[in-house]
Each structure stands twice: as structure tokens, then as C-alpha cells.
Amino acid sequence: MSAIDDTAPGRRHGWLSPSLLIGAGLSVLIVLAALVSYAWTPYPPTQMAILQRLQGPSAAHWFGTDQFGRDVFSMIMVGARNSLAVGLGAVGIGMVLGTALGLVAALRRDGLLDNLIMRTADFTHAFPAVLTAIMMTAIAGPGMLNAVVAIGVLNLPYFARLARGAALQVWAQDFIQAARANGLSNRQITIAHVLPNIAGILVVQATIQFALAVLAEAGLSYLGLGTQPPNPSWGRMLNEAQTFMATQPWLAIFPGAAIALAVLGLNLLGDGLRDAIDPRLRRSR
């Protein structure tokens, strides 16, 4: 999707585009919810009160209570931690390993290693991502950590391909020749020159992959394969809410809205950052 041109309309505002502003605002909101939840939530998020089960939104429980009488608002706040942790972990794995592989592939351009890495990346693409993640969690057992690894591994090819492509462009530039003339080794050049030059584009991609990771975790948790109770997770809250849809619809509305806002914020932030960091990227394909 990063290959798609997303020129926001009417962009003549310099680097502080509306995308960036709204995206940053939403992202900060989610991060704040997660941070504040460590110090304060209206109720302890895992505290059950069976006799207060399935209450509608009220002054006491802003988003109502679930089937165990837990406070939904508190659970959504703590759920933000979970989504952010999964996003960070998965993108971390994908970005670090993927970039490393991409840089190596660029160094060994058209060599055996390059072919091996890139063919494997293509190959992983053939499997529907959700199916791969389902199978991985089926083997390793469901749980947040395994979800992070599964989503992280699926992120790898994106970063590998991006890093390889961008690195090849850098390698083709004149100042690399100069560096080589100065006697720097390939590894030194990669670290001193190539990496800093592709960092921006990687960060942009990371933001977008972060949003996809949040979405993927929500999907896995919805299927019961992600984060496990008692840790609140937005996706699993939706799964449990489905049973109560006819009588307690609010249970299905708030967690979904949280996912949508988080993903929207991160996507907008990614778009905004891309334009801010490197306006040329806008038209690049």
C-alpha cells in the first residue's frame, strides 16, 4: 500500500499537513490512554463484579460493564497498552531483521544470497497473512507474544524489500564512490552512509506497518488467538461482545471504535510523516 500515491488534496501547507496533525493527535491520545492506565483507571480493569454484569453506559461506568461486571472504559484504556505493545514488538522484529536482510541483499546484488532472500520474501507473500498467523499461533499456542512474533515475521518481507530497493538507489550515488575511494569497507559504508539515508523511508513504512499490526492483532484476538484473558484486548472484547449484540450493543461499539481510531491515527501519521520527511517520496512509485 505504501506504493500508492496518497497525495492529500490541497497540500500546500509545508510540512505541517492536516494528516500529520490529526494523525499525531490521535496517536498521542492512544499513547496517553496507555500511559495513564498504568497510574489510573476508573476501576481495576480485571476486577469482576458478577452482580453488576452487563450494565449500560452510565455516570458510574462510562462505557458500561461486560458479562463479568468489569468496567469497559477501564478495559479499553488498558487495551491501548496491549495494542501498542503488539505494534511496537511486531514492527520492531520486522524492521530490524527485515532491514538487515534488505541491506545484505543490496550488498550482494543479484548474487545467490540476494536471490535467496528476495525469493523467500516473495514466497511468504503467497500465503494469506491471516492464515499464516493462524497456523503459527496454532503451533506455538495462542497468546500475545506469539501473535507479536507471527505479525513481526509477516512484516519482515515488506522491510526487506523496501530496504533493498532504497539501499540500491543510495549505492548508485556519487558520494558512495567517494567513500569507497577513501578505503571504507562495504560494511562501514552501509552503516555510515546507506542506513542514515534510508532511515526516513523506513520510519514512514514502520508507522504504516504499525497500523497494520494493530489491525492484525485485533483480528487474531477476535478469532481468540491473540492476547489472552485477563489482559484486556480490543479484538477479544469484540469477540465476546458478539454474543450480547441483541441486548447489549454498546459492548460491540466501543472496542471497535478504539481500534479504528488507533489505526486511523497511525495511518494519517505515516502519511503526514512521509510528506514531511521527504516530499519527493510523494510521487515515487
Binding site: G219, Y222, I253
Partner: peptide
Amino acid sequence: QAGLAIPNFWFGLL
């Protein structure tokens, strides 16, 4: 943007 951000299973529930 909204279409990409809204999880399709939640949209289904809505």
C-alpha cells in the same frame, strides 16, 4: 482513510 482503518469484522458487526 476510514475504510482502511475500520477493521472489517467490526464493520460487519456494525
